[in-house]
Simulated scan of single mutants.
Amino acid sequence: MGQPLRVGIVGLGAISGQYLSAFARLEAVRVVAVADLDAARAEAVAAEQGARALSVDELVSDPEVDLVLNLTIPAAHAEIALKAIAAGKDVYGEKPLAATLDDARVVVEAGRAAGVRVGCAPDTVLGTGVQTARAAIDGGAIGEPVAATATMMTPGHERWHPNPDFYYQPGGGPLLDMGPYYVTTLVTLLGPVASVVGTASHTRATRTVGSGPRQGAVIPVDVDTHVTGVLRHESGVLSTLVMSFDSVATRASEIEVHGQTGSLIVPDPNRFDGDVQLHELDGEWKTLPPSAGYRDAGRGYGVADLATTPPGAAARANGDVAYHVLDIMTSLLASAGSGTAVTVESTCDRPAPVPLSDAPGGTRAS
């Protein structure tokens, strides 16, 4: 108790830099080991962090590692998580929890059986943006919630990512890649989802890499690249979701929530902050001051939140929420394939709200 959670990171791709930047200021966590398929990259990051560069197997079995942070590609999420759990480690992974719902179920059940904690991104919902919107809804600012919309429209990640292949393989696509931010936000704001109906399209068989050393390379597309549908929350609220790698741009708000007496514009769920706007009946749009959430948060705050959650309590970015979010998304794809509504078999507790506060566990002196 009172000691930082000792973290070992598996996978040192682009997203790892954001975690390392946040960890540098968080008292609740300390990076002690790293592993990557690129041994030179692991050695370089280890030297920067004052950590050790290890193989994956060495890292997950190391007694100095309390939690394995799994930043591998989606296809490897379950494999690494299960290795960590088998070694008695807590595990926190990038989204989605696994590439398939069956694999995710195995991870959650293995963690529960082993008595270790399973956490999963996104933790953007812990920042002041989504949490201020939640506080407004819970406080009755829009009356009884009725409906929500969530929209993400882009031309595809191959335009900027030097190695975009996994975005177009099973476990990727706009829904499974970007959807976790939007669906986790909807669950945070409005509670779990009971059923879905959806449709999807697969418009191109290939994509062309637009930047980096592989610029001009043609990669196959094995997933649907435009998905839309309606989620029926257990509360009866209807959320409309549109996720696309086939568009150019949109002027629609990222997320809106509408109630009987007011409407909210929720900031970009890919970010931790942003303005929440409220329009009350017979009023006009106004910006709400931050009233909840971790201030100045960044990727990795979910790990710190887990580290500071009391024994027996559920961390906010937990595996049950991540599993339910993946169940919602895979059910939506199943509905698109069958043309019928699909019941979402899982549920989860709505995560605890975050009071307006600084970093969980405090920040290191600069």
Rank of each mutant, 00 (worst) to 15 (best):
residue 174 P to F: 07
residue 9 I to R: 03
residue 98 A to I: 11
residue 79 E to M: 10
residue 198 G to R: 03
residue 226 H to A: 10
residue 269 P to S: 08
residue 144 E to H: 15
residue 66 D to P: 07
residue 139 G to R: 04
residue 241 L to I: 01
residue 110 A to G: 12
residue 244 S to M: 02
residue 201 S to R: 06
residue 221 V to T: 13
residue 267 P to H: 10
residue 48 E to N: 15
residue 65 V to P: 04
residue 239 S to C: 01
residue 192 P to I: 03
residue 114 A to M: 06
residue 84 A to G: 11
residue 269 P to A: 05
residue 366 S to R: 15
residue 264 L to R: 06
residue 269 P to V: 02
residue 327 D to K: 01
residue 93 G to W: 04
residue 347 T to K: 00
residue 237 V to Q: 01
residue 354 V to D: 11
residue 260 Q to M: 11
residue 358 D to R: 04
residue 28 A to V: 12
residue 299 R to G: 06
residue 252 A to C: 11
residue 308 T to W: 08
residue 254 E to N: 12
residue 244 S to T: 00
residue 314 A to S: 13
residue 120 C to E: 05
residue 142 I to R: 05
residue 332 L to T: 00
residue 353 P to W: 07
residue 169 Q to T: 08
residue 228 T to M: 05
residue 64 E to S: 15
residue 90 D to K: 02
residue 248 V to H: 12
residue 37 L to P: 14
residue 329 M to S: 03
residue 47 A to W: 09
residue 76 A to C: 13
residue 36 D to N: 11
residue 192 P to L: 00
residue 236 G to P: 01
residue 23 F to M: 12
residue 36 D to K: 13
residue 347 T to L: 02
residue 227 V to W: 00
residue 310 P to E: 06
residue 102 D to Y: 10
residue 37 L to K: 15
residue 179 G to R: 02
residue 210 G to K: 03
residue 63 P to M: 02
residue 54 L to E: 14
residue 286 K to E: 15
residue 301 Y to H: 09
residue 300 G to H: 07
residue 13 G to K: 02
residue 95 K to C: 05
residue 313 A to R: 14
residue 291 S to C: 11
residue 38 D to F: 14
residue 63 P to Q: 02
residue 163 N to H: 10
residue 318 N to P: 09
residue 279 H to E: 15
residue 328 I to C: 00
residue 237 V to G: 06
residue 15 I to Q: 05
residue 268 D to K: 04
residue 66 D to T: 09
residue 73 I to D: 10
residue 47 A to I: 08
residue 223 V to H: 00
